[in-house]
Design a protein around this nucleic acid. Sequence first.
DNA 1: TTGTCAACTGTCAGTGGCTGTCACTAGTCT
DNA 2: AGACTAGTGACAGCCACTGACAGTTGACAA
Lengths: 208, 208
Amino acid sequence: METLRERKKRRTRESLLRAALELFTSQGYERTTVDEIAAACEVSQRTFFRYFAGKEDAAFAVQEMTEAHFLAALRARPPHEAPMEALRQAALQDWDSIRETVESAVPMELYLRMYRTIESTPALLAAHLRRSTAVEESLARLLAEREGVDVDTDPRPRLAVAVFGGVIRVTERQWCLGRDFSLEAVRSLTVSYLDQVSSALQGNWRAN
Amino acid sequence: METLRERKKRRTRESLLRAALELFTSQGYERTTVDEIAAACEVSQRTFFRYFAGKEDAAFAVQEMTEAHFLAALRARPPHEAPMEALRQAALQDWDSIRETVESAVPMELYLRMYRTIESTPALLAAHLRRSTAVEESLARLLAEREGVDVDTDPRPRLAVAVFGGVIRVTERQWCLGRDFSLEAVRSLTVSYLDQVSSALQGNWRAN
DNA sequence: TTGTCAACTGTCAGTGGCTGTCACTAGTCT
DNA sequence: AGACTAGTGACAGCCACTGACAGTTGACAA
């Protein structure tokens, strides 16, 4: 059972996270100070730093959950699937079931707004890309294990994941730039872009 | 002709840049303060910020030159080359002729050490990845123009560049991790990895 | 219930990156 | 030589972040 102390702690964290994302998305990440976030929750600035390693950490708290969610999705793919197919299916399945994961922390709508804020804030975009490479390292190891190859001598796991990651990044970016900012939109964009990779890689585009 | 004032300015900048990279690579980026860099050049901290937008800006001053160098290399490729082939050739040619570009600012050896520092410092790696996406955007536009397609409606330029960028990133990373930290090493790694992409993308790796 | 302990929090002081301001020095130009 | 102005240093201040210390409050046993 959850003790009173734990409950209070959880509430404080949730309150801080929510206030942070609300402020980041409404007035911008840089224009939001940690003091402001703490004040909104009626705690001291010091307390904020006891719950989050930094301002940036708060911005990515939900992302961290979805990253783990995607890794689990890949782990759950049947072992007979080819690497790229497994990645593709994991991504699609991920978008289909992400809502529950996200809403255990904040409203889905806030998460989506934060996604856009990350993409349009240079400092956050940089952090996002670095986090992505960390996830990609895990993905590569997972694929290598699935296929029974050594990730340190065979570059194919990392290459496959890097290519996949590149396509996902393009997808994310176009999604955030577009008008239709729904889950269905990102899902279909993912399918469309993954399907066009081989066409993009080979030959002359003019010849179609 | 270069006036005395301009000469002094250039010298100050060169001095600051060199001192910065020397300190970053020897004692670490985070453990180096701007005050330290300024003191090493006998100028005030304020002056450092008149030459560089920030500490990070100094760390990437040479990278910025090599980025432009690569873009120029791609622009110089004959228009009949297929997109991926042009990217590949530009990359190889880039590594072959990078020395002159770099040494107009700092010794090659310092540049290479800084490269490793960037890769192993989380904050710098993040910034590096963000810068890379900016370069990739330029590359995509360049390819689109070459091929006569519209970069805003046809995703293939961005996809091709993202895939290419992903491979280059893997290359950079493995290069920095490896023992052979020479230009020849990165060149041959580039060739090797680009050659293995199609193999990595399709089918079952075990069947090989 | 009460006293003790440990967890949680606030306050304060300090560091480092970064910016605005202002006065002053030193090239530049006529 | 004198006026102009780019470049600089000194100073004050903001914000992210950290360490140290003390006060408060929930947990748990006697």
